[in-house]
Design a protein around this nucleic acid. Structure first.
Lengths: 167, 167
DNA sequence: AATATCTTTCAATTATTTTTGAAAGTTTAA
DNA sequence: TTAAACTTTCAAAAATAATTGAAAGATATT
């Protein structure tokens, strides 16, 4: 396999993986491309490499910057903007985890808390409902706390974690 | 909030969460419904409660069973099939993690391994590519191993994990 | 202040995913 | 073996999501 082929395969795979995890394909592809680019790329570069429109590139770059995993850069003398990806993988994982926690898990937790605290007639159905959603609340809360804790580690937390788990 | 409202809210929220994580909305909703049902439900029950077609119910129940998080049950004297969800949350998390690892992570790992081992001319670009994809391979491999390890724990692994992390 | 360079926005289009419903398939019972 | 009860399949339709491209917005340059 030669470089160009490998690069393309990597970008496609990363894109597919992204879309299986609720992240838009192009967004993941742009990120993949920037990850393996030693130099910052312009919007033009990205459009060309991924064969996408200007609008698409613009919107997805914006989204990546909102996630905090792609940065804008300016080159002196150049008018246009350049982009780089967060390349530190620990940092990347933490940012993604934090963002998903904020956007999806925390709101879901609120709902779980609300629905698990209904009061009233104690039928079998309602008892089971409260019991089950309470357990779910505790579980998701723990998982979410884990994300927060993990953030404090930094620097190869996943390696340490694996060590710890394996005892 | 009364029971029916709470139940509906729970199902809707779980469905939305599912679709943000690459799991089809109806599939997540069926699972949510079964989680809070003290008794097994028939396909008819599910169709009625979620207002979905027979085909939709059938396909998504099949998918849930493939994931190993919903089981078929037979009631003696009854002709039709009934369904229950895995209600043990540790078990549920492990099954989901294993399944996603098998379906998505393991294949991606293969690709990462392949593309990170290209040989040839040592330009800045290829060097950076190999370096970056190798790191990614190591990282994803560690994360995936963590899933495997966690499986061995069973019984409230997440609680223990949080304990460990917090020292 | 006019022009050139570059970016963002968004309505319309295109692509993808999900859902439906009816026909075909299966299993049990009479 | 026929019929009834139930489930699965899958092509077509509907719903949802992603993408385009051109116009409007910026911002810097002359």
């Amino acid at each position: 396999m030669e470089f160009k082929e490998a690069k393309n395969k990597f970008i496609q795979t990363w894109g597919a993986l992204g879309s299986q995890w609720g992240i838009n394909k192009t967004m993941a592809q742009i990120h993949a491309l920037l990850m393996v680019s030693p130099e910052p790329l312009s919007m033009e570069d990205i459009m060309e490499e991924l064969l996408i429109s200007r609008g698409n590139a613009s919107m997805n770059l914006r989204a990546l910057m909102d996630w905090g995993i792609v940065y804008k850069e300016y080159k002196s003398g150049e008018r246009k903007e350049f982009f780089t990806a967060e390349k530190d993988l620990d940092e990347l994982a933490v940012k993604i985890a934090q963002e998903r926690s904020k956007r999806e898990i925390k709101p879901a937790l609120r709902v779980l808390k609300d629905v698990s605290s209904i009061k009233g007639n104690e039928t079998k159905e309602t008892k089971h409902f409260v019991d089950q959603t309470s357990k779910l609340y505790d579980f998701v809360l723990k998982a979410d706390n884990m994300i927060d804790k993990v953030t404090e580690f930094k620097d190869n937390w996943i390696g340490r974690l694996v060590m710890k788990i394996m005892k």
